[in-house]
């Protein structure tokens, strides 16, 4: 069992940053994060909207099997149809938070941490792509996809 710092953005962003929006740490067991980052389950309905958002979550740029129109979905990553029947909630959570921990060569960005990429543009520096609340909403939605 190991403990990792999830976000430093909270500290960097100062008092205007919503302290409820981020978790500061999480525990990985095997290939899963068993506990919700926020301490409670997310909202699957909000998660469905987030997953379909092509500029915020970006999920449908690579994944098929989601709520977006088929002609606007990518095919660079596995279909997420029925993903809730194939993976546990904890497994889904780790994959959204940090897929590269399981596969360093993965195309999938780290959603729950600070990007390791070079030349991160100003507005995104030191920030995770999604907040812990957003990640939990997406996890709740994906868990509901039982196929």
């Amino acid at each position: 069992m190991r403990r990792f710092v999830l976000l430093t953005a909270l500290l960097l962003a100062g008092p205007s940053f919503d302290a409820q929006a981020v978790a500061t740490s999480y525990e990985i067991e095997g290939d899963a994060i068993a506990e919700p980052l926020t301490g409670h389950e997310g909202d699957a309905e909000r998660g469905a909207a987030l997953v379909a958002d092509r500029t915020l979550s970006l999920c449908v740029l690579c994944h098929s099997g989601l709520v977006a129109p088929v002609h606007m979905q990518g095919n660079l990553a596995p279909s997420l149809a029925g993903i809730g029947g194939r993976l546990t909630p904890g497994q889904i959570r780790l994959r959204v938070v940090d897929m590269k921990r399981l596969n360093p060569d993965s195309l999938m960005p780290v959603y729950g941490g600070v990007a390791p990429g070079a030349r991160v543009a100003g507005p995104w520096q030191g920030k995770a792509i999604l907040t812990a609340d957003e990640i939990e909403d997406i996890v709740a939605y994906l868990v509901s996809l039982k196929g």
């Binding site: 092509r54 970006l58 449908v60 740029l61 690579c62 606007m72 979905q73 990518g74 095919n75 660079l76 590269k100 195309l107 960005p109 780290v110 990007a115 390791p116 990429g117 070079a118 030349r119 991160v120 543009a121 995104w124 920030k127 792509i129």
Partner: peptide, 20 residues
């Protein structure tokens, strides 16, 4: 970048694929 992707990730390894 924040998405941590190289040119090659798409245009070398996945040029036959579709993005969105």
């Amino acid at each position: 970048g924040q998405l941590d992707l190289s040119c090659a990730n798409c245009h070398e390894a996945n040029w036959q694929g579709r993005l969105g």
